[in-house]
Design a protein around this nucleic acid. Structure first.
Length: 479
RNA sequence: GCCCCCAUCGUCUAGGGGACUAGGACGUGGCCCUUUCAAGGCCAAAACCGGGGUUCGAAUCCCCGUGGGGGCACCA
C-alpha cells in the first residue's frame, strides 16, 4: 500500500435495499477514492442483530454493481484489512474495548437497560458506574453480573473537530453522553465499531451523512484515548423531499432499485444524485461516472440539504437515454415492448422511440397502438395546426387509399414523397394530408414518428386496413 | 428541553467584498423548426429570509432574530 494513499469506505448496514442518501454517500466516497487514485472499501455494519437481514448482503453487492461503484476491498474482495463484515470482527472489538478500559477511556457499566430509559428527554448525566472501583467491578463480574462498556467522557472542556464541508465545530463535553461501546451481547455499537474499523482499515476520509455531525466529537475522544490519528471528516448534507421532509423508504419514497424499476437508468440516477449536494463549478450537468471521477472534489460539496426532484431526474434520464447507442437502447426497450409488437421491425420502432423516451416504463404505453388502434373519437380528426377536420379527413383518406394501394416502394421516403405530391396537386398542405393518416393509423394524439414512419413500420396491408377502418369510422361519425 | 448545523428563483445550484441590471439547469409560459408528439433552437416570468453592524462598497464578513433540519438508544 502506498503511503498516504486515500482510503474511503462505504459502510452500509444490511437493510435489504439501497437508500438514495446512502447511494450518494457511497458515490461521493467512491469518487473521492477514484479522484485521488486511492482505494474504495466496502464494509458491512451488521452489529445490530435485530435488524440484520441475511439476503440483503446480496442486495448491496447488486446495487453497487448496477451503479458502477466498484470497490477495491470488501467482504468478497480481501485487501488485507479484513474481515470486512463487522459481525466477523467481534474479538477485535473486545480486545480494543478492554484496551480502552486500561487506558481509562471507558468503564464497565452494570446498570440494566431500563435504568437508562427513565427520561424521554434524554438528559445528559453521568452514569453511577463511572465511580465503581476496581474491586467493585471485580465483585460484580465474579457474581456473574452482565455489563456493557461505556465511553468515559471527560467531565469538563470541549471537543473541536474540523470538517471539510462544515468547517470547525466545537461541542462542550458536558453535552456528550457516556455512550455504550460494547453491548452486553458482546457486539459493538456503531459508535465504537466505526472508530476501531476506520482506524484499523486505515481510512483517511470518513464520509457520512451529516446526522453524525453531533456525535463526531465522541469519536474524536475515542481516537484520542487510543492515541490514534484523527481522520479527515467529510459530512454530507441530507437529501430531502420537495416538501422538506425526510426522504425515506418507509414513507413510500423509492430506493435506488425502486427507481430503476420505475424506468430510470442507473447511470442517470448516479448522475442526478451527484448533483444533489455537489456542483462542478461550471454549467455542465450531464456526467458519466468516469467524468465524475475526473472532476469531483470534496471542496465543492454543499452544506445545505437538497430536495430530490423527480422532474429533474426524469430530464437527465432522458438525456442519458438519448446518449445511448441505438443498439443499447433497443436492447433495453425490448423488455417493455408488448409480445405482439415483435412481429414488427422493432429496431425501427426503437429508433423512433429513443429520442422520445424519458423513462423506460413509458415505452409500453407509447407503442401500444402498433398492436391495436384504441377506441377514439372522430373529434380526433380535428386539428387546428394541421388545418384538418373530420370532413377533410374523410376526403383525404378516401382519396389516398387507392393511391397508397398502388404504391410499389413502401418506405418512409417514397410514402412521404407520394403524399406530399398528392397534397400539392390537391391544394392541401402536407400537414393536412398527414394528420388524418396518422390518426387513422394510431388512434392517438401523439405517436413516435409521423404518418409515413408509422406506415412504413406497419407495412402496406396493415396501413390500408387501418385507413379503411378510419374511413368507415368517419362515414359513420360525420354523416 | 439541551446541543449542533443550514438559509440565493418553486426545485438543484453559480457566486467566496466591487466584474451582479445576481449566472446556469429542471419545471412553467411563448415563439421557431416540423408529418403528430418529442428532440433541438430562441425568448419570458421567477431568488439573495428579516434587522442591525463592519466597509468608500455587501448575496458575499460579524451579531441578533426568524425559519428549516439534525442529534441527544445496549440503531446505524
Amino acid at each position: 500500500m502506498k503511503h498516504n494513499m486515500v482510503r474511503t469506505r462505504f459502510a452500509p448496514s444490511p437493510t435489504g435495499y439501497m437508500h438514495i442518501g446512502n447511494l450518494r454517500t457511497a458515490l461521493y466516497a467512491y469518487l473521492t477514492a477514484r479522484h485521488y487514485g486511492g482505494a474504495f472499501i466496502l464494509r458491512i455494519e451488521d452489529t445490530d442483530q435485530e435488524r440484520n437481514i441475511p439476503e440483503s448482503l446480496a442486495a448491496i453487492f447488486k446495487s453497487l454493481e448496477m451503479a458502477g461503484l466498484a470497490y477495491d476491498e470488501g467482504p468478497d474482495r480481501d485487501g488485507g484489512f479484513g474481515p470486512y463484515v463487522q459481525s466477523q470482527r467481534l474479538p477485535i472489538y473486545k480486545e480494543y474495548a478492554e484496551q480502552l478500559l486500561t487506558l481509562g477511556g471507558a468503564y464497565r457499566c452494570f446498570c440494566r437497560k431500563e435504568d437508562h430509559d427513565l427520561d424521554g428527554d434524554a438528559p445528559i448525566r453521568r452514569d453511577p458506574c463511572r465511580l465503581l472501583t476496581d474491586d467493585d467491578v471485580k465483585h460484580k463480574l465474579d457474581a456473574g453480573e452482565s455489563c456493557v462498556i461505556r465511553q468515559r467522557i471527560p467531565e469538563g472542556g470541549s471537543t473541536t473537530f474540523d470538517d471539510h464541508v462544515y468547517g470547525k465545530i466545537t461541542i462542550e463535553n458536558a453535552q456528550l453522553d457516556d455512550q455504550v461501546l460494547l453491548k452486553s451481547d458482546g457486539f459493538p455499537t456503531y459508535n465504537f465499531a466505526n472508530v476501531v474499523d476506520d482506524h484499523l482499515m486505515a481510512i483517511t476520509h470518513v464520509m457520512r451523512g451529516q446526522e453524525y455531525l453531533s456525535s463526531t466529537p465522541k469519536y474524536n475522544l475515542l481516537y484520542e484515548s487510543f492515541g490514534w490519528p484523527i481522520p479527515e471528516y467529510v459530512h454530507l448534507p441530507l437529501i430531502i423531499k420537495s416538501d422538506g421532509s425526510k426522504f425515506s423508504k418507509r414513507l413510500g419514497d423509492p430506493s435506488f432499485e425502486d427507481l430503476v424499476a420505475m424506468g430510470y437508468l442507473p447511470q442517470a440516477i448516479v448522475n442526478y444524485i451527484a448533483l444533489l449536494g455537489w456542483s462542478p463549478g461550471d454549467d455542465r450537468e450531464f456526467f458519466t461516472l468516469s467524468e465524475l471521477e475526473a472532476v469531483f472534489s470534496i471542496d465543492r460539496i454543499n452544506k445545505s440539504s437538497a430536495a430530490f426532484s423527480f422532474d429533474k431526474l426524469t430530464w437527465i434520464n432522458g438525456e442519458h437515454i438519448r446518449a445511448l447507442p441505438l443498439a443499447t437502447f433497443h436492447q433495453l426497450a425490448l423488455d417493455y415492448y408488448p409480445k405482439a409488437l415483435l412481429d414488427y421491425d422493432t429496431l425501427k420502432i426503437s429508433e423512433l422511440m429513443q429520442v422520445r423516451t424519458e423513462k423506460l416504463t413509458d415505452i409500453s404505453q407509447m407503442v401500444a397502438f402498433f398492436v391495436a388502434v384504441p377506441e377514439y373519437d372522430v373529434a380526433m380528426y380535428h386539428h387546428e395546426k394541421s388545418k384538418c377536420d373530420p370532413t377533410i379527413s374523410l376526403a383525404i383518406l378516401t382519396a389516398v387509399e387507392p393511391l397508397l394501394a398502388e404504391l410499389e416502394t413502401w418506405d418512409n421516403d417514397s410514402l412521404f414523397q407520394a403524399l406530399k405530391d398528392f397534397g400539392k396537386a390537391n391544394g392541401y398542405k402536407t400537414g393536412t394530408v398527414m394528420w388524418p393518416i396518422r390518426t387513422a393509423l394510431s388512434g392517438v394524439l401523439a405517436t413516435p414518428g409521423g404518418a409515413t414512419a408509422l406506415a412504413e413500420i406497419m407495412g402496406k396491408a396493415e396501413t390500408l386496413r387501418r385507413i379503411r377502418a378510419g374511413i368507415e369510422k368517419l362515414e359513420r361519425g360525420t354523416s
